[in-house]
């Protein structure tokens, strides 16, 4: 059973002058408990796909919507974004658009309060969120006085405070330094192991590839390639050209092309060095 289903979904934004197709005949199935990477060129439709998950598309964005999106069995056209927010927590691409409260603590309490949770429950969720993204020390600060990376973590925490079964994060590490980016990604991977379903748009492939179960590459509103990381990295589809592949992947793609006995595509330094040592020990001749 899939927890998310897109059935032939198309969507065009009304932009005034003309309609702009952002999603074209998208079919996608996501299994519960998986960690899925969505990637592709700028403007290919990644954020639009996420907006379709929690009903922002079509409820808030004007445009033409066809097809069907089912989230935990709920047809997004039939449920309000508030109802859908119980299923999917969406972390927006730009944290600023999300942060509105006086201070971080209030910001995190906002969502749970709106859902009418009990006071104890709200406090517990807020504390949980502050802890997991490591922002206890920022709790009294105004979101406007935070550095870019701090804002990003607050935005992630505000969605975690709702504790939904599905998390969709649109470039959640965009403003984070590498260590913090890795911490967030590792944390998401942990949530996945606790049974959450995670969708992420992420450009830092070197950090995220080792963690994900499935990779979806979009191009011009369509899904161009999807499958396991190895499968996608080997694909000849031109949509792959828009991806910034980690240098190690580039290296091994080159080796594969140049030397017949190279056939692996590792994406971590450890795996790459293992393969190289093994090849060298075999007496590999360049």
């Amino acid at each position: 059973m899939s927890i998310i289903q897109f059935r032939d979904v198309s969507f065009s934004y009304h932009t005034g002058e003309c309609d702009f197709p952002a999603l074209k005949n998208v079919n996608l199935e996501i299994s519960p408990g998986s960690f899925v990477l969505i990637c592709g060129a700028t403007g290919c439709g990644k954020s639009s796909l996420f907006r379709a998950l929690n009903g922002l598309v079509p409820h808030f964005y004007e445009g033409q919507f066809t097809g069907q999106v089912l989230v935990n069995g709920k047809d997004t056209r039939q449920f309000s974004t508030r109802d859908l927010s119980l299923e999917v927590g969406l972390v927006f691409q730009n944290p600023d658009n999300q942060l509105i409260a006086m201070n971080v603590e209030r910001e995190l309490a906002f969502g749970p309060e709106n859902l009418g949770l009990s006071r104890e429950k709200i406090i517990a969720q807020v504390e949980y969120a502050l802890d997991v993204v490591n922002i206890q020390h920022l709790r009294k600060k105004s979101p406007l006085e935070l550095s870019g990376g701090e804002q990003q973590r607050v935005a992630i925490a505000s969605v975690l405070a709702l504790n939904p079964p599905i998390l969709a994060l649109d470039e959640p590490t965009a403003n984070l330094d590498p260590q913090r980016a890795l911490d967030i990604l590792a944390f998401l991977s942990q949530l996945k192991h606790q049974g959450k379903t995670i969708l992420i748009v992420e450009h830092r492939l070197e950090l995220v590839l080792p963690l994900v179960d499935k990779m979806v590459v979009m191009q011009n509103g369509r899904i161009a390639v999807e499958g396991s990381v190895e499968f996608v990295l080997r694909s000849q589809d031109p949509a792959i050209d828009a991806l910034e592949l980690p240098p190690i992947v580039e290296l091994f793609k080159y080796m594969e092309k140049t030397y017949p006995r190279f056939s692996d595509i590792p994406f971590t330094v450890e795996k790459a060095s293992e393969i190289l040592f093994a090849k060298k020990n075999e007496g590999f001749k360049v």
């Binding site: 060129a41 700028t42 691409q93 965009a174 403003n175 450009h203 828009a242 991806l243 910034e244």
Partner: peptide, 12 residues
């Protein structure tokens, strides 16, 4: 300030 954030490989 962070010009490559959110840019794909081609744009970069």
């Amino acid at each position: 300030d962070e010009p490559t954030t959110g840019q794909d490989a081609v744009q970069k």
